Amino acid sequence: MVEIKTPEQIRKMREAGLVVAEALKACREAVAPGISTGELNSIAAKVIADHGATSNFLGYHGFTGVICASVNDEVVHGIPGERVLADGDMISIDCGAIVDGWHGDAAVTCFVGSGHAEELLRLSQVTEDSMWAGIAQVKKGNRLSDISRAIESYIRRQPLPPKGKYGIIEDFGGHGIGSAMHMDPHLLNYVDRRRGRGMKLVPGFAIAIEPMVSLGTPKTHTLADEWTVKTNDGTWSSHWEHSIAVTEEGPLVLTAFDGGRAKLAELGITAAPDPLG
Rank of each mutant, 00 (worst) to 15 (best):
M1A: 13
M1N: 10
M1W: 12
E3I: 03
K5R: 12
I10F: 09
R14L: 11
V19Y: 08
A23L: 07
L24R: 14
C27E: 03
A44L: 11
A44C: 11
A45I: 00
I48C: 05
I48K: 07
H51F: 05
T54S: 14
G59A: 06
Y60T: 03
T64Y: 05
C68I: 00
N72F: 04
D73V: 00
E74W: 00
H77M: 11
H77N: 08
G81A: 07
L85G: 04
A97V: 10
V99A: 09
V99W: 13
G101D: 09
G101H: 08
G104W: 02
G104S: 05
D105F: 06
F111L: 13
V112A: 13
G113V: 12
L121V: 05
L121D: 10
R122Y: 14
L123H: 01
S124R: 00
W132I: 12
I135F: 09
G141M: 13
G141F: 15
I147N: 15
I147Q: 13
Y154S: 04
L160V: 08
P161E: 07
P162F: 11
K165D: 01
K165A: 00
Y166C: 00
E170P: 04
I177F: 02
D184K: 05
P185Q: 11
H186P: 11
H186C: 07
R195Y: 15
R197N: 12
M199E: 10
I207Y: 07
A208V: 12
V213P: 15
L215N: 09
L215D: 10
K219N: 09
L223N: 09
A224S: 11
E226C: 04
T228K: 01
V229R: 00
T231H: 01
G234T: 06
G234S: 04
T235Q: 14
W236C: 06
W236A: 07
H239I: 01
I244M: 03
I244Y: 01
A245R: 13
E248C: 04
E249G: 04
L252R: 01
T255V: 02
R261C: 07
A265Q: 14
P273Q: 07
L276C: 07
G277A: 03
G277C: 00
